[in-house]
Simulated scan of single mutants.
Amino acid sequence: MKRALICGVSGQDGAYLARLLVEKGYEVYGGSRDAQMATFRNLTRLGIHQDIKVLSISVVDFRSVLQTLLKVKPDEVYNLAGQSSVGLSFEQPVETLESISVGTLNLLEAIRFSGLPIRFYNAGSSECFGDTGKEAANELTPFRPRSPYGVAKAAAFWQVANYREAYQLHASTGILFNHESPLRPERFVTQKIVKAACRIANGSTEILTLGNIDIARDWGWAPDYVEAMWAMLQQDQADDYVIATGQTNKLRAFIDVVFQAVGLNWQNHVRVDPDLFRLTDIAEGYANADKAQKKLKWAAHHTMKEVGKLMVDGYLEQN
């Protein structure tokens, strides 16, 4: 039986990855900053809380990381920890850099120090690319991040590449474009839209206030993307991969899909507030995930339209 440690198991990706690994017969350890206080509601929602051995680990504390690795002795470590909001990173740039960049470095150094044959996955982000215009970003596209979050993720990416080359660690980064699900917290705009649309359809008279709805993103389905994470660690050679659907849509198209799913015309219920525009935002994001398709035999199974409808269905099931 393989043993996996997921750092950041309480988040969207951590919960779906935990479910996938349980289904594959892994012994799964889930790390959180304070396992005694965390609710692990996402694990409960997926019906797998009892299948996960939860433990406390602070990725910004090297001693905590090393102790955990020596105790668990995992075959695979998935680094999904750290501050996860682009918008919040402008308000908490130091916390963002420490939790993502320093956290990744601690995990890499602890793996190297331990001498254990651990395979390591690092959660990268399309935010590293910045604004590439109409160019579909692939693994060779230069990084020009436009947020503290993107800067932190870019630093972590190069740390992984350095440890892979210098110390021959089996360490890979998945450069994931936007991926959503019903487990997203409401601070993410997709979930904010879904919850507001469902409340309005249920009689609320509120107006949904949003920032720039003309941004364009490649939106996928989170459960598809964790399959790619697992596939990277099954390869003989570690490498980095762009993970995306290859289809880009404007946010207003996502809004339309969600409101149509609850029988409403979004234009009657949405207001744009320029004060909510980010200081520096990416106008459009395009992705080329051909390498993942060829080497990992991975492809996204859900389009943006399906994602929007699935998120609505997921919210209605819970309310």
Rank of each mutant, 00 (worst) to 15 (best):
T141Y: 02
N162G: 14
A166E: 10
T205M: 13
A161C: 10
E206S: 11
W158M: 15
R146H: 11
F120S: 02
P185Y: 15
H170M: 09
A154R: 07
Y149L: 00
C198Q: 11
G174E: 05
N202V: 14
A171Y: 00
A154E: 12
D131M: 08
G130Q: 03
G124S: 03
C128S: 12
G124T: 04
T132N: 09
A137W: 08
G203Y: 02
E165K: 10
F157S: 09
V189D: 10
S172D: 09
S147K: 06
A123E: 15
S204T: 01
T205D: 15
P142L: 09
F177M: 03
L169I: 01
A136R: 14
T173A: 07
T205Y: 05
A155M: 08
Q159Y: 08
N178I: 02
L169Y: 02
T141L: 01
F129I: 09
N212V: 15
Y121S: 09
S126L: 04
S204W: 05
G174N: 05
K192Q: 10
N138Q: 01
Y121V: 05
P185T: 07
E165M: 11
L208Q: 03
Y121C: 05
Q191L: 15
F177H: 05
Q159A: 14
Y149G: 03
A152R: 11
S181I: 12
Y149I: 01
P117S: 08
V189M: 10
P142G: 06
A137S: 03
F188L: 07
P148A: 09
P117D: 03
A196K: 07
P145E: 08
L208I: 01
L183D: 03
L208H: 06
K192C: 06
C128I: 04
Q168W: 15
A166R: 14
L183F: 13
H170Y: 00
